[in-house]
Amino acid sequence: MKRYQNLILLALVAALVVIPLLIVKAPEPGPDGEEVEIFEGADNQAKDLITEIVPDYHPWAESLLEPPSGEIESLLFALQAALGAGFLGYWYGSSATRARLRQSGEKKA
């Protein structure tokens, strides 16, 4: 059980990601034929909600740099994740190797 614990946990995370994709269906396009977007970012929804509560609110600052397209934005997000994942992989690999070397050293002794 202990051996498979991490695999089971990973499978649960995968299920938590996949289930919403299966159960949430895009609503029918409105009368004007406009497609309703699903899986929009919650940050954007909050922005829309602010304009709904206070219609005359105007943001008083703008981002210095806006990614020129969705592609560039995903490039930067991928870079952020890759930096983190790269380090985690390095740590895991070096730790596992060290543990194995120590074990084989103990056997010889």
């Binding site: 994709l21 983190g84 994942a85």
Partner: peptide
């Protein structure tokens, strides 16, 4: 590194947003 990875992952939720 863990914070870098996790805060870059936009995941779908049952509410239909990410």
């Amino acid at each position: 590194a863990f914070t870098f990875v996790l805060s870059a992952l936009k995941m779908p939720s049952v509410t239909g947003s990410c």
